[in-house]
Amino acid sequence: MRFIPTRFHGILDYIVGIFMIIAPWVLDFSDNDAATWTMVIAGALVLLQTIMTDFEVGLIRRIPMRRHLTMDFILGLALAVSPWLLNFDERVHMPHLILGVFSILASLTTHRVPSHSYKATHTAPDHIRNL
């Protein structure tokens, strides 16, 4: 069941992306390089993807919303299992697991198409929209 509007998803992406980048220092796990860089890179990817998505809060609008949601799912899965794959689970794992599951759930519950009013005024060229 998809009930999250794309605009709300995008606003959350900006907030969560910034939080991911600062999380290692705010949540006190910056002494672990693998945990820190995994979270910072994930946050940067969330922000970059949001900036480039063709929806209400995107700035460059090159990535279709469906592809954005697929990438959210893959990134969430990778983030959720990263503590065990990269062997930092004994030091920290909950932020990565929680934000990873959050990303997966957001990808599965967000509308696949921006609102009708957005689509009526902002349409990407066919060669980009059909990627």
Rank of each mutant, 00 (worst) to 15 (best):
M1V: 11
M1H: 14
F3D: 01
F3T: 10
F3I: 12
P5F: 09
H9L: 05
G10P: 05
G10F: 05
G10W: 01
I15R: 01
V16W: 02
V16Q: 03
G17R: 02
I18P: 00
W25E: 01
L27C: 03
L27D: 03
F29W: 08
F29E: 05
F29I: 07
N32H: 14
D33G: 11
A35Q: 09
T36P: 09
W37D: 07
T38D: 13
V40L: 07
V40R: 15
V40I: 13
I41W: 13
A42C: 08
G43L: 04
A44V: 15
V46S: 10
L47T: 09
L47I: 13
L48C: 15
T50R: 04
T50M: 04
T53C: 13
D54E: 09
F55K: 04
F55R: 01
F55P: 05
V57M: 08
V57E: 08
I60L: 14
R61D: 06
R62P: 10
I63F: 09
P64W: 10
M65N: 14
R66A: 12
L69P: 11
T70Q: 13
T70R: 15
L77S: 12
L77F: 15
A80Y: 02
V81S: 12
V81L: 15
V81I: 15
W84R: 01
L86M: 14
V92G: 01
V92Y: 02
H93D: 00
L99K: 00
G100E: 04
G100A: 00
L105C: 06
L105I: 07
A106L: 09
T109E: 02
T110A: 00
P114Q: 02
S115N: 08
H116I: 09
H116Y: 05
S117F: 04
S117Q: 05
Y118V: 05
A120R: 00
T121M: 11
H122R: 09
H127A: 08
H127F: 10
R129M: 08
R129A: 07
R129L: 08
N130L: 09
